[in-house]
Design a protein around this nucleic acid. Structure first.
Lengths: 226, 226
DNA sequence: GTATAAATGTAAACATATTTACATTTATAC
DNA sequence: GTATAAATGTAAATATGTTTACATTTATAC
């Protein structure tokens, strides 16, 4: 079970909010890799991951893929197709088998007017995500890749609820940060030599979360939040 | 006067929304450069620029400043201090003399419950800004600095309602993109040699908006939106 | 077990942007 | 007008990350 604080930090919707929205959702199941929405599409609707994961990112004209985020249950996407009249910014694909809830614009707006608590929850989710996005933007401007990689690993660990070992390839880390696999490889080597992480095949283990955090904090260029 | 579409594209609040909120705002005037909020502060409250401009950005521990955005009238900031319980991500300072409206958490939440239209407007603003932020993030990953500079200039032009000439220093462009002043200088030289812009002292002129846009579009790495 | 695919390690050549340093231009205050 | 400050131009040295290319390791399917 996910704690309340974790909801707030990830932008996921609270169980209270889900209780209000769940009856209104159309449910659909997706197979691994199946396309949910593509960048540029105009069909409006809020999507909420209910089971499994959804990979959100973009393929460039040259085929290069950059991952934006892997959404877990109760995380939503596509708000701007409803509240602004903007097309999808990202391609969303099922990441493993997954169950996704969908609600259209008019239905959602009506629900908000009727139950403004829903709006407060969505406002929380959106403002948290904007917050995170702005922080990452600052990191990109200020921090060297190795520190940003360390932060990604730390975040991964926090979101997973403090698990020690994580299954992900260096390629995935690279596509998330928008850097080459090679620089990820050499950064991980360095972090591993510092004893901050342990590398494996498609795996990273973080033996001591606190030590990793303090290493990151020493390299932080601006005042820490939280 | 700003058109409705421009509101939607910038994340500014609509005049309808302002009509609802204005009676609830505490007004305060700031002198040029005066601090409004600093990064890390916890005092919650939504701020709305009413007159003048507000510069939002961050100073690093080494003193380096990166500009996030210059907010114009009817643009808001600080949502996450209310809807999430997060501290200020950015330092906000008056940019020229300015008038700022302020509304505290409980007052705003009550207003939303009473008039859910306010929530819809805030949701629009937040989702638009998240949308923009994600697009910029993708640009950082994919585009060379010169193209990103061209996009910033194009955006500036669009937001100013198609004015030809703009007063800003190369240093300001650099701090917005998080790059060095020198690379801005050489990029502007290149753009100027291509006839896409004209340089001046603290000034950029865009002789032909459409030509600049098509130059940018040719270099776009992912599918265009809008 | 063996073959194959996927992931990782590594290094040289290259590209891009930063840093440092100083010259030049332009505006502004007196 | 002159002095000063602010902004811009430029270039060499350096740093950081990418690209290309291939070797090696590890998992998985047969």
């Amino acid at each position: 079970m996910i704690s309340k604080q974790q909801h707030e930090l990830s932008g996921a919707l609270s169980t209270d909010c889900m209780a209000l929205l769940e009856p209104l959702l159309s449910i659909r199941y997706y197979a691994d890799g199946e396309l949910i929405f593509a960048r540029g599409e105009y069909k409006a609707g809020l999507c909420i991951v209910l089971e499994g994961s959804v990979k959100v990112g973009n393929y460039g004209k040259d085929g290069r893929y950059f991952l934006s985020k892997v959404l877990k249950p109760y995380e939503s996407f596509g708000e701007f197709t409803i509240f602004s009249k903007l097309p999808r910014t990202h391609t969303a694909e099922a990441y493993g088998e997954s169950k996704v809830g969908y609600i259209g614009p008019s239905k959602l707006k009506k629900a908000i007017i009727k139950q403004p608590e829903i709006a407060l929850q969505l406002l929380q989710s959106l403002s948290t995500r904007l917050h995170m996005s702005l922080e990452v933007m600052d990191d990109i401007k200020r921090l060297p890749v190795i520190v940003r990689i360390a932060k990604v690993l730390f975040e991964l660990n926090r979101e997973a609820g403090g698990l020690e070992s994580h299954s992900l390839s260096q390629e995935e880390i690279a596509s998330q940060l928008g850097v080459s696999r090679m620089v990820v490889s050499s950064s991980l080597k360095e972090l591993s030599e510092l004893g901050l992480i342990e590398k494996g095949y498609r795996a990273i283990r973080i033996p001591d979360t606190h030590r990793l955090l303090s290493w990151i904090k020493e390299r932080q260029q601006i005042k820490d939040l939280l």
